[in-house]
Nucleic acid binder design. Structure first.
Lengths: 244, 244
DNA sequence: TCGTAGCATATTGGATCCAATTTGGCGAGA
DNA sequence: TCTCGCCAAATTGGATCCAATATGCTACGA
């Protein structure tokens, strides 16, 4: 719940006041990711300014950054709204993501540390746990599964990308990631135990390939994983466009 | 020379006044690309504002966008300066570029139109012409070679990326491209007829592979081409860091 | 001569002000 | 009742103002 009016953007006491804009960018990005600011909704400068206790000037600069990052669109004299990516854009982004993350995995097979490998295996355990919860079927277990899978998925992919050692690759993937609605992948899996199990298997294969230091195999698995996610998302949205 | 004070940013008469910021972003990006604003130099808001006859507000927003794009760095209370990428960043970016453009070529082999293919072949002709000029050796011919190669190279790569049909891929490559000093590749080739010839051969191989609709071969050639460029650049900068 | 304190200047950062544009509602007329 | 046009409110865009901060120069003292 990062929306409360007292949500400080930066430690105002310290000298980093000028990270104000950067802080706003992060805060807004988080709120968009978490669904606190909905996709397609307008962002009112005055409102944001009041919520963070600043004037519109830094808010506008933050919005400009988000615009450059492709997170929001700014319309003439109308304001900024969270970009609603088209089905096509999502498809294309997933293709790019697959290629890039595949390459990251390939590099990671060479450069990964033991600690990072441990993280991957740990996440695999969590994926399995999430599958078990999902099999229970009741609402609460499903929510638990969602939370577990979410964190594990984020950590898993972030670890691989960090382990590849190429910072430009990491940055590129991050911006690509920020452009997409965050819950896309989970929405596609939709808590289906069967799909979740499949998904866990894919992650396990990737981790095993990296652990075995087989870069090309890791790439193959990641690309397959990405393509599979893309298929599921398309399947889910082919009649139902993302949002009103 | 797009620096003159009368350099309009947008057609002020029309309704697209609010493209002011976007116009500034483009204008500044161009000036940086062309070396009119040097790498590592500070960009004074007031100066830019006066040059384009606007206030500092839109200039600052434009700078924020450029910051988000990684083109400039903004330092607390000091201002914005054109980012000087480290040798490592350049190396890494070239690796990403190779992967991405390789994939673009692979897709282009499927999707390219005849008109685009014609452009590729035409550019190959220009590369050859540039090689001939470079062989002459005198200053004037070299400048001619440079101009020809420059345009042809831009067009060649842009055509492939446009032909791949994946707009997200195109956008990603463009931002990656904008982060690098533009004359890097030419600096690496340095007007050396031998290297230029080699370079022209590489381009020809790529075009041939795409023409033959062999996506994987095209990918291989592009990645080799990119790796080669990377090698030359590293060779050139291994003792001489890019700029003071 | 060298180093340092302190002040003047340049420059940025944020807030505020005003104009321009869009939106939505309300009423007049068909 | 429906449509068109006009006006008021909301919102953005750009300019300007003032405070905060960094830089560079100068003068003073060791």
């Amino acid at each position: 719940m990062p929306k409360s009016g007292s949500g400080h953007v930066a430690t105002s006491s310290s000298r980093d006041q000028e990270r104000l804009v950067a802080g706003l960018v992060n805060a807004l990005q988080d709120r968009i990711s978490e669904g606190d600011i909905k996709i397609g909704s307008w962002i009112r400068q005055e409102r944001i300014a009041q919520e963070y206790g600043v004037s519109r000037t830094p808010v506008r600069e933050a919005l400009r950054q988000l615009e450059a990052l492709g997170v929001v669109e700014m319309v003439a004299n109308r304001g900024a709204r969270v970009t609603l990516p088209s089905v096509r854009a999502i498809t294309e982004a997933f293709e790019v993501r697959g290629v890039l993350e595949g390459h990251a995995a390939c590099l990671a097979a060479r450069n990964i540390t033991q600690a990072q490998l441990d993280v991957l295996h740990e996440m695999n355990g969590i994926f399995r746990e999430a599958v078990r919860y999902a099999r229970a079927g009741d609402e609460e277990s499903l929510a638990k599964a969602r939370t577990l899978w979410y964190r594990a998925n984020d950590t898993f992919h972030a670890t691989i990308v960090a382990a590849c050692g190429n910072r430009q690759l990491q940055l590129t993937l991050e911006t690509l990631h920020h452009r997409m609605p965050r819950n896309l992948s989970w929405t596609a899996l939709n808590g289906d135990p069967r799909l979740l199990g499949e998904n866990a298997d894919e992650h396990a294969q990737i981790a095993t390939a990296i652990d075995g230091r087989d870069g090309e195999l890791a790439r193959q698995h990641v690309m397959h994983h990405s393509r599979r996610a893309q298929e599921l998302i398309l399947l889910r949205f082919e009649d139902v466009p993302p949002e009103p």
